[in-house]
Simulated assay, not measured.
Amino acid sequence: MKRFNRYSLPPWVRTMRGVCAQFIIPFCIFQGIRTILLPTTFDVLLLTIFIAIALAIYLEVI
């Protein structure tokens, strides 16, 4: 299986990855506070998705 190389991506994809890396932690914090105050199924699923994206970005899976 071919190893993933993030430098082989187009420039616009690398830019979007950088933008997501900057904004994902504040989104997770906001969503976590919102989930604690008013937990709904949608809020929990959205928080789970945000955490998965944050882990993927910071562990360099994406």
Score class of each variant (00 low, 15 high):
Met1Asp: 14
Met1Arg: 14
Met1Pro: 15
Lys2Phe: 03
Lys2Glu: 15
Lys2Trp: 07
Arg3Asn: 13
Arg3Met: 09
Phe4Gln: 10
Asn5Glu: 14
Asn5Gly: 06
Asn5Phe: 15
Arg6Ile: 15
Arg6Gln: 10
Tyr7Arg: 08
Tyr7His: 12
Ser8Gln: 13
Ser8Phe: 09
Leu9Met: 14
Leu9Cys: 11
Leu9His: 02
Leu9Asp: 08
Leu9Val: 04
Pro10Asn: 04
Pro10Lys: 04
Pro10Phe: 01
Pro11Phe: 09
Trp12Tyr: 10
Trp12Gln: 12
Trp12Gly: 01
Arg14Ala: 09
Arg14Ile: 05
Arg14His: 05
Thr15Ile: 01
Thr15Gly: 03
Thr15Asp: 10
Met16Val: 10
Met16Tyr: 07
Met16Ile: 11
Arg17Leu: 15
Gly18Val: 03
Gly18Glu: 09
Gly18Thr: 05
Val19Glu: 08
Cys20Asp: 09
Cys20Thr: 07
Ala21Pro: 02
Gln22Thr: 05
Gln22Asn: 09
Gln22Phe: 12
Gln22Tyr: 03
Gln22Ile: 08
Phe23Cys: 06
Phe23Asp: 04
Ile24Gly: 01
Ile24Ala: 04
Ile24Phe: 00
Ile24Lys: 04
Ile24Gln: 06
Ile24Arg: 03
Ile25Cys: 06
Phe27Glu: 07
Phe27His: 04
Ile29Thr: 10
Ile29Gly: 05
Phe30Gly: 13
Phe30Ala: 11
Phe30Ile: 12
Gln31Glu: 07
Gln31Phe: 06
Gln31Met: 14
Gly32Gln: 01
Arg34Tyr: 03
Arg34Lys: 13
Arg34Ile: 01
Arg34Asp: 09
Arg34Pro: 00
Thr35Glu: 04
Thr35Ser: 14
Thr35Gln: 07
Thr35His: 03
Thr35Ala: 07
Thr35Pro: 00
Ile36His: 10
Leu37Lys: 05
Leu37Arg: 10
Leu38Ala: 11
Leu38Thr: 11
Leu38Pro: 00
Pro39Glu: 08
Pro39Phe: 13
Pro39Arg: 05
Pro39Leu: 09
Thr40Gln: 00
Thr40Tyr: 12
Thr40Asn: 09
Thr40Leu: 07
Thr41Asn: 03
Thr41Gln: 10
Thr41Ala: 10
Thr41Pro: 00
Thr41His: 11
Thr41Ile: 00
Asp43Lys: 15
Val44Asn: 04
Leu45Phe: 06
Leu45Pro: 00
Leu45His: 14
Leu46Cys: 05
Leu47Tyr: 03
Leu47Gly: 07
Leu47Asn: 02
Ile49Ser: 00
Ile49Arg: 07
Phe50Gly: 07
Phe50Leu: 14
Ile51Thr: 13
Ala52Ser: 14
Ala52His: 02
Ala52Ile: 02
Ala52Phe: 13
Ile53Trp: 02
Ile53Thr: 05
Ala54Pro: 02
Ala54Asp: 08
Leu55Arg: 01
Leu55Ser: 11
Leu55Tyr: 08
Ala56Phe: 07
Ala56Ile: 03
Ala56Gly: 15
Ala56Trp: 01
Ala56Gln: 11
Ala56His: 11
Ile57Trp: 07
Ile57Leu: 15
Tyr58Met: 11
Tyr58Val: 06
Leu59Val: 08
Leu59Thr: 15
Leu59Trp: 10
Val61Ser: 06
Val61Phe: 07
Ile62Asn: 01
